[in-house]
């Protein structure tokens, strides 16, 4: 295996972080726009921000209540 330089590694991993960030941002936008959620909104903010990928997924799966 070639040893990769640090900058190369960072440039490889950066897109992954960006896409995760994108998911979190979308989840937060949907959360603030939603009229009804299961459970309080502030709790979902914490779950989305600190729950990482699983937090956002949990919100999309269970957080919204259909009207």
């Amino acid at each position: 295996m070639d040893v990769l330089s640090n900058t190369k590694v960072i440039s490889l991993i950066a897109p992954l972080f960006l896409i995760q960030l994108l998911l979190i941002v979308i989840a937060l936008i949907v959360l603030f726009k939603a009229e009804r959620t299961r459970g309080p909104k502030w709790l979902w903010v914490i779950i989305i921000l600190f729950g990482n990928l699983l937090g956002s997924i949990a919100f999309f799966l269970f957080g919204r209540r259909s009207v």
């Binding site: 896409i19 995760q20 994108l22 998911l23 979308i26 990928l53 956002s56 997924i57």
Partner: peptide
């Protein structure tokens, strides 16, 4: 949006 992103991250 969220299903493809989840799979990509995974």
């Amino acid at each position: 949006v969220w299903l493809p992103i989840s799979f990509i991250v995974l």
